[in-house]
Write a protein that binds this DNA or RNA. Structure first.
Lengths: 225, 225, 225, 225
DNA sequence: TATGAATGAGTGTTCATTCAT
DNA sequence: AATGAATGAACACTCATTCAT
């Protein structure tokens, strides 16, 4: 057998395997997706580069090629997570709603997004365990978030002007509170279910919690009750 | 030589040696303390048994002697953390206060305890990353917490009877909310400070947040505003 | 409470526990028995001092007190095993039997002893893995065994004189052969059962093997067939 | 540069480096060879992965890469040992010999193979200490050995047909006996030399034993004596 | 671009043995 | 005589990363 034939056959074999060699975008996207799953399931320290390589179907070396290393890969994952939730939020067009409606929509969105994307919560937890080291180095994030704060402040201002919201509520405090009452319930689902001796993830309880949160934020904001 | 003298001498020897060989209680306590620090700083997966041994001054082998292994050590740390916060809570004697006062005290206690004992937050986060595996195996915890829930329910009931609290607020929802609004702010201090572009741990902001939380819970509970 | 009373009470407690403190013979015997089991099950390297201490009920320190260390304990175990089989053999009174009868008895005894005391086989295997290091240091053994060889030689000589045994068979070769055909079958029971795809330890097969061995040795020794 | 030249150059590089990085086959072969030596010298429990890595010249990590772990490595070693002896046996072409000649050849082969490859004996001993755990999981072995049994049975049958062998001798019993009388002598060389107070490995004694074994098996099989 | 072999520092864990009482 | 705490060296195994092709 000649060398040429050998090589041709080798390439056929590769193509036949199917996991898309020579397709940079697909490779790096699949690595990122696998990384999200792994970092979410195990945390930063518990995550294994080998596991990510295996799950993504890509060669381990590719992770270093595209992302640099474990730390940079985590940064990329985190960045994506923070941008994804913002992108979803923006689709709500909160600035086009009435203030009462907008707040309800934000509370409900937060709850449902956390519920459907629990990896966001885990990644944020991991990042705080590492003292925000990765997020601090991300410039994209630091440009994106002030805009969000302005949006919420806008809603409050319109509500105050309309006479339905109390004055003096800070957008930061409000926002932290809206996140907190959903985040804590969901991120501590396991210890919570043990401590309170009930399945916090039961679908009826989940709806109840959303309702409770909506009322909580309304009572906090509204001028009359 | 009398038995009394023997014992006295033995104790002197122990004290003279400092961190004490042949003092099981002290050894295991120092391991536990070092474990709290390490698990808190690095999470479960990131924590190193070697580091715990080094910090505790004990021989690494002693960790296995007294606790069995990394997993069991984490369980012990977690158990202690959950019992400690309950012990501190009980000292408040909430059941002897007026309901309004008791709720305020609980909110303030929660905030200040989390602030002074941030390891509690980190440990809870870690445990939830591991799906509550360790807490589930702890019977002490599962006996302790129902009592706490009854206490809070008692406060609510007394407030409702007195006509100051609204009816229909569940102790579980209230409790989760009280924890959430403190927990989230503090556990996400790093990402929060980046996202909101301000130092969330500034002492004035901390006091502001406590005040905000108190008002939040009052508005949630009180019949009139 | 006085010191005297304290001490008295402590001793009561010990006695109540029952595993015989202050009874040197019982302690060392129970250690030896536990050691036989452990060394047999795991081999020398695989055996654990902790396991022996646990099984014997004695304190780990006692093993060092009575036997010196792991190596010396193994020597003691081995010595006992070699003396036990000799003691059992002596009870047969082979020198009082007719030569044909004596040989049959020796073959059957060897087979049944190995079958009932498989630890002997394992210990011998272990000792050979260690190149006879422990046995070489035992003087008791080296005094005991020449006598045994003389016994077998005596049987052969009587058989030759009687005209029933062939001349020129060495006691050593005969003895090794008698041991070999039982030993190999039993010590390799596991690999043998796999290789030959049948349960070598089935009771019928065991009896068959004994019969085969008896015939084998007879054909080897007897003048006529 | 042509493919042929590239390949040639690559091979040169490999050869130049000696024990060869980037040569999977050579690496795994050298690990296996080192493992045979270590497991033979120390038994399974006594063998050290570090020692195998050191001796093989490979990185310790490679052992896990190629074989999985200590247990799987032992299985590989054992499998190889069992296949090697069969391969050597097959070269004898026993089925082309006269039955008397074939049996003699098998006895002599067994003796000389055990003598030249003592690691086979030790490995089999180790495996039996572990109750055949590794061998049982090997399908190659379980397919290979029935064929060997048929071969021996064929020899017996031909001998019986020819009128030179007695009828009713089972291939399994014969085979076990042939192995036993060589195996026991050699595997227990150390304790044997002590017990019988002579060097069993002396070259004259070795030849004597082979002669004795040949006669033993002949007397067992032959119709006349 | 892509691959799989290779690495060295380290990871939790276990060991036989000794110390202090 | 007896105990249980203490030790340090070693154990099997794993890690993120780099090399050679």
């Amino acid at each position: 057998m000649t060398a040429t034939r050998t090589k041709a056959k080798a390439q056929d074999t590769k193509r036949a395997r199917g996991s898309g060699p020579r397709d940079p975008e697909r490779t790096s996207a699949s690595i990122l997706a696998a990384a999200v799953t792994e970092f979410t399931a195990k945390g930063y320290a518990g995550a294994r580069i080998d596991a990510i390589a295996l799950r993504s179907g890509a060669n381990k070396r590719m992770i270093y090629h595209y992302f640099g290393g474990k730390e940079d890969l985590f940064t990329a994952v985190l960045e994506e997570a923070y941008l994804d939730i913002r992108a979803a939020e923006r689709k709500l067009d909160l600035d086009k709603m009435e203030p009462e409606e907008a707040i309800d929509a934000l509370v409900e969105f937060t709850w449902r997004y956390y519920l459907k994307n629990p990896e966001f919560l885990t990644l944020v937890n991991s990042e705080n365990l590492h003292k925000g080291r990765h997020l601090r180095s991300s410039k994209v994030i630091q440009k994106e978030y002030p805009r969000f704060l302005e949006l919420v402040q806008g809603i409050i201002d319109r509500g105050v002007a309309k006479g339905v919201f109390r004055d003096g509520i800070s957008a930061v405090q409000l926002n932290i509170t809206i996140a907190a009452i959903s985040y804590y319930y969901l991120t501590n689902r396991y210890t919570g279910s043990i401590i309170y001796d009930r399945d916090l993830m039961d679908s009826r309880r989940l709806e109840e919690r959303l309702e409770f949160n909506l009322q909580n934020i309304r009572r906090l904001l509204y001028t009359c009750c």
